[in-house]
Amino acid sequence: MPFDALNDVSDEALLIAYGNGDAEAARALTLRLTPKVLGFAARMLGGDRAEAEDVAQEAMLRLWRQAKDWRQGEARITTWLYRVVSNLCTDRLRKARGVGIDTVPEPEDGSPGAAEGLQQAARAAALEHALAELPDRQRQAVILRHIEGLSNPDIAQIMDIGVEAVESLTARGKRALAAKLGPKREELGYEDG
């Protein structure tokens, strides 16, 4: 099947095709899912790129291994992957306790030169620093809800908690972020309120 033709195929159909030996399906899934997995892992790990890449590779490997046993319709592949990444990151964060906030690298400047691009980069960096100071569960819930854009029921499934607990975690996380970043309002390009 030509590669372009796979753009409209669902993740699940691609995974099943992969399980049946289709190499092109693996390529399509890799290009589609690795950015999501890597982005989430990098945010969960406070921007540690090398660590995030290892987590992304491991999560995708677990997906390949799951292919032949995948139970159709039971869970969305992205939800399943976010859950795997969450667990992997939580394990690594537990082992790496004590890593200071100063070790969080500045994000790479995606489009240097443009003032707007610089401001976006500054805002993303400030948010990343503030996120890294949150308790793990709050950080995870805020990232999944407000950056990855998942629904509360999906997050509940990923974090293995109730929807109300998700709402509580995101609300507390957002309050904490707003308080931490308030003093940086001007740096972030916001008018004094």
Partner: peptide
Amino acid sequence: KPLDDAELDGLFAAARGTAP
């Protein structure tokens, strides 16, 4: 004074735009 929701949303949007 803490950031309001719109300001925080601006930060989240920036983070989405600078995903690795």
